[in-house]
């Protein structure tokens, strides 16, 4: 019964699958190396060629790359936390405690998410510092510096919105204080200068639109949750795509132009 060619057929079919995924062999020529990179959807995100100085850690400190890595860690741990967390004032804190004490690996995921958030603020700041002291904001990289400033703000907003979600005393009062600062916005905050000109009160100012009410209550928790888990990450990814694409268009990650 056994087909004498079955082994060969099996190997050929495996080979076919392999070659349908990786279409360029191992031939070590400059052309083939480039083809290997640009024909792979993951590897093509990297430049086909990296200049030698681009790999020197002493210059870039890899801070942008580390920031992006931490962002990916935050996405993964954040999605896992969402499986157990309910953005409801009666459940949020209990869910957080349950994550810590009853969910296998829950405490690890929460702590990684939290420390990652701290780390991301630090690395993004160090990245900005490095770009500044190496003068990498100068033309033609000016546009990308501005994108980077937007991403810095996005990082802060992600941290800020995430702060409220455990619905504990720390986060609650931090958001209360932060939102009252928002209430002091010129023109749009009810305690800010010139707000009377626009007829702004506590129930129609910028703070009201951010927390969905005049006090930090259920709507504020839901809004923080949606901003934190959906809206801001989408904006962050969009800005990151521009940021990374622009690095290459502006001549690579380091070195003179």
């Amino acid at each position: 019964m056994k087909d004498p060619n079955s082994e060969k057929k099996f190997k050929d079919s495996v080979n076919d699958i392999w070659r349908s995924v990786f279409r360029h062999g191992y031939t070590d020529t400059p052309r083939n190396r480039v083809l290997q990179i640009i024909s792979n959807v993951w590897l093509h995100l990297h430049p086909a060629r990296v200049r030698e100085h681009g790999t020197k850690l002493r210059f870039t400190w890899c801070m942008g790359g580390i920031t992006f890595f931490i962002f990916l860690v935050e996405v993964i741990t954040g999605v896992l936390l969402m499986f157990y967390y309910t953005p409801d004032v009666n459940k949020a804190f209990a869910d957080t405690i349950d994550l810590m004490y009853t969910v296998p690996f829950g405490r690890l995921m929460r702590n990684v998410h939290r420390w990652g958030a701290h780390a991301m603020v630090i690395t993004v700041s160090v990245h900005m510092f490095r770009v500044f002291i190496t003068g990498s904001y100068k033309p033609p990289r000016r546009f990308n510096w501005v994108m980077g400033v937007f991403l810095l703000v996005i990082t802060f907003l992600l941290s800020f919105t995430g702060y409220l979600l455990p619905w504990d005393q720390l986060g609650y009062w931090a958001i209360t204080v932060g939102m009252n600062m928002g209430g002091a916005t010129p023109f749009l905050g009810h305690e800010g200068p010139f707000s009377q000109l626009l007829g702004i009160t506590a129930s129609n100012d910028i703070r009201f639109s951010l927390v969905g009410g005049t006090t930090i209550a259920a709507p504020a928790l839901l809004r923080a949750y949606v901003w934190h888990c959906v809206a801001i990450p989408v904006i962050a990814v969009a800005l990151m795509m521009v940021h990374f694409w622009r690095i290459r268009k502006d001549g690579g990650i380091s070195g003179r132009l």
Binding site: L188, G199, N204, S209, G212, G213, T214, P219
Partner: peptide, 14 residues
């Protein structure tokens, strides 16, 4: 828009 846009609910349960 501010004051009457999507993020300004007309009724709040407070």
């Amino acid at each position: 828009w501010f004051k009457h846009g999507f993020f300004y609910p007309k009724v709040v349960f407070e």
